[in-house]
Amino acid sequence: MVETRQQELGRQGEDLACTYLEGQGLVVLSRNWTCRDGELDVVAVEGDRLVVCEVKTRSGPVWGRPDEAVDQRKLSRLRRTALRWLAKHGVGWCPVRVDLISVTWPPGGSPHLQHLRGA
């Protein structure tokens, strides 16, 4: 399967996000985990807290800021999907935080990453 430019950009943004999170001391447990409720881009752990990260990558402002793509409906879906992840992996109750990582990566330029904790 040939990856489109958008898919490649999204994958690169997720790679950058994982590297960043690991540099912040988090341990990445899953990437692109899917179930009937949706997909979790990155699932990590920070201490005893599960951290679900939605990663949005854009090449520029044409489609708006990356964080503008995450609304309350999307956050609810992420929380519901996180509960399914916990059940699937046999994890009992633990605190869950939903984060947003926005990556702006212009063609030929350097990426800019912003991490919003507790979106």
Rank of each mutant, 00 (worst) to 15 (best):
V43F: 01
A119N: 05
D67M: 08
G90Q: 06
A87C: 09
L78V: 02
S102Q: 07
P111I: 00
A44N: 08
K88C: 08
R97W: 11
Q114E: 15
K88H: 14
L116A: 13
E54T: 09
L83Q: 15
E39Y: 11
T104E: 09
C94I: 08
L26I: 10
G13N: 01
R58V: 11
P106L: 05
L16Y: 09
D99M: 00
R97A: 12
W105A: 01
E14D: 08
R49V: 08
G13F: 03
G109D: 11
L40T: 06
V45R: 14
T81W: 02
H89W: 06
R49F: 06
E8G: 07
A119D: 02
G108P: 11
P111T: 03
P111V: 00
D71I: 05
C94K: 15
R11S: 04
S59L: 00
S30V: 07
V43S: 03
T4V: 09
T4Y: 10
G38H: 09
D48T: 03
P106D: 10
S76M: 05
C53L: 11
A17L: 05
E3A: 10
V43P: 08
R5K: 13
L113K: 12
H112N: 04
R31T: 01
E68N: 07
L40R: 01
L113V: 14
P66E: 11
V70E: 00
V2A: 13
R97S: 15
W85Q: 04
G10R: 03
C35E: 12
V91T: 06
D99I: 00
V55H: 05
D41I: 07
R117N: 05
G47A: 12
V62T: 14
G38L: 09
H112C: 01
